[in-house]
Design a protein around this nucleic acid. Structure first.
Lengths: 229, 229
DNA sequence: AGGTAAGCCTACTGGCCAGTAGGTAAGGCG
DNA sequence: CGCCTTACCTACTGGCCAGTAGGCTTACCT
């Protein structure tokens, strides 16, 4: 992102609507993530976006609509990033591992998005929470399905839906919390953090303190960016 | 015609300061938990508390001070509940188990407190987040210490501080998330939910899908309420 | 009883901010 | 070249709400 015209001439350069909308959304995500929904003002968003307030209203509607749109956009981006990262044909543990890597990779490269999604959206009572809870619910369902599927691999009586769902909720929460912790301790690469969570949820403390760790089946390194654990 | 007891006589009965302060705090926790910090208005809190707004300011100071005080009070209550529940002389797994039971027990009986602590406090940028993050940090440190201590039980090289801390963050997050899930699916008793998380973090999915579960060493039932898993 | 202080109130101010009215430039196209 | 559509602006309004000024009332104490 390189510099704009350094001065604010009072009038912004004329741009097609789609481009402006993108700029505005980027500014909105930035401001919302820093200040939270209520403390963020439309004036500040418009200033960061480099345009005037009426443009905001003309393009994105009310403050609530704007926020909801931000959530939807960032949530979609994240879900897509994870979906792209998951290796769906692999056994359950590898699926989980690849999903975790994708998740932490996304968070690491999109901190503002993560702030908006995790901190802000969940705490506002409006339609946002719904929007967000919905996506979070889909993530949980996905993990729950993975868990149920895992137990099908074995001869164990298959876990109840409630049981799987609650475990999935715990896992998703662990991921969220660990992502937050990571933002405060960013010195470690995404892969290390992801591996740690993988070990926790797959092996459990009981095995970990006994020295047993999980590791991915050794194969050729992943095709895209190679973070090592 | 002598006066009945109308609901709001316009003037509240005279009460000693300490009692009023308690009432106000209870009302504040209630309103903050339902509406969040910003959407809650001092007018509504004073109405719920059954007194007028200037009393709020006279006793508890500004809105921010009031909120911070709420957080501190509820956080302290929760930490005490957990500290009382933990069986400190037992082996690590039993300590964790008793802590989890105490935690879910508290959440189940203090939903408003939990809402204020978990949802509201963390999302406001002010001194609250600090207050709350501080307590959360202490909880994480506690768990981290427990983990480090666990590995001392074995001959495994002891886990690094960072490693233990991040795992503790994940565990705390899992607990928080599961507590939220539980609020939406309240039909199960606290003990069952706690046991599920215990199994997840101690055994791991790997063992669980293979049919191995953790269970508490069978001893006399716990002295207080006996929830069975 | 009378003093006094603690508890309580009604009714206002002032600032902040979402949202709008009404007008100006700039690219496109006949 | 003039017209129109689209992008863009300055400058206001109106409501909500934190916080306050100033006054009333009841319990307790001597």
């Amino acid at each position: 992102m390189h510099a704009e015209q350094p001065v604010r001439p009072g009038r912004a350069k004329r741009l097609p609507r789609a481009v402006r909308e993108r700029q505005i959304m980027d500014a909105a995500v930035d401001v919302f993530s820093r200040l939270g929904f209520h403390a963020a003002s439309m004036d500040e968003i418009s200033e960061v976006a480099g345009i005037s307030k009426p443009m905001l209203y003309a393009y994105l509607g009310s403050k609530e609509e704007l926020f909801a749109t931000c959530i939807r956009r960032e949530a979609t981006r994240m879900m897509e990033a994870i979906a792209n990262g998951v290796e769906a044909e692999e056994p359950p543990d590898v699926q989980l591992w690849s999903g975790l890597r994708a998740f932490f990779g996304f968070v690491g490269e999109n901190r503002a998005s993560w702030q908006v999604l995790h901190r802000q959206a969940s705490s506002q009572g409006g339609p946002f929470a719904e929007e967000l809870a919905d996506m979070r619910g889909r993530a949980i369902s996905l993990v729950a399905a993975l868990l149920v599927h895992s137990s099908d691999f074995t001869n164990v009586p298959r876990a109840g839906d409630k049981e799987a769902e609650s475990l999935a909720a715990a896992l998703v929460g662990a991921g969220e919390s660990l992502a937050d912790w990571w933002l405060d301790n960013p010195e470690e690469p995404a892969g290390v953090v992801a591996a740690r969570l993988m070990n926790l949820v797959w092996m459990g403390f009981g095995d970990l303190v006994a020295g047993d760790v999980w590791h991915p089946p050794s194969r050729r390194p992943a095709p895209d960016q190679g973070e090592d654990a």
